[in-house]
Amino acid sequence: MLKVTNLYKSFGSQTVLNDISFELADGEVVCLRGKSGAGKTTLIRCICNLDKADSGTISINGIESLENGRPNKAYQNTVGMVSQGFDLFPNLNVMDNITLAPVSRKLMTKDQAEKAAQALLDSLGIGDKSKSYPSRLSGGEKQRVAVARACILSPSVLFFDEPTSALDINATREVANLIGDIASRGISVVIITHDESFCDMLGARQIVIESGRIAE
């Protein structure tokens, strides 16, 4: 369970997050909506420890995001991110993109990691792409690789930043299916989007952010 309490963050004189609190159950899907500049991205960057909030607490399953003011490693393992540009490593093929983290962190042997990665790719419908380089993949395939790369570390919460930007209706539906699939494995999903119809398609709870505050 993700729990965000009284989060504040400002850049200079501009308050970007103003007393944000919410909770998210295991396997729940939530859409973060709002205009650009409303603070959505800053919020999930803070939850992911990519930015530091000025005050407030964040915890997942009781593990705090910070430990003595520094990012908590145990916490970091519980969050995963599929960013807007996916940020795949272009010099590594799909398999190496997915296995680099578990193998270099000695969480799995190379063999175990490759088996797990292949299973993930198969379940995401891109089992035949393991040797491809990212530049050879379509946008949708890259997204799935990014999902697999995050999921191999078994996160509790997975964040998506604008997963449907520039997608047509069919592709959007596929992403919705993919997210439903992830949630059904008990992983909570937080989606930044300004696409209301996509939220409806997911049937997800919506949190609307306006000027750094939660509206509705």
Binding site: D87, L88, N91, L100, S104
Partner: peptide, 27 residues
């Protein structure tokens, strides 16, 4: 090299030296 790759590495818990030599340097 896109800053996003450093962040992706951080999110995945990959240590900075590993990320540098395996990902950033070759690019």
């Amino acid at each position: 090299i896109d800053k996003g790759q450093w962040e992706a590495g951080q999110m995945l818990g990959i240590s900075k030296p590993v990320l540098f030599f395996k990902v950033i340097l070759p690019q």
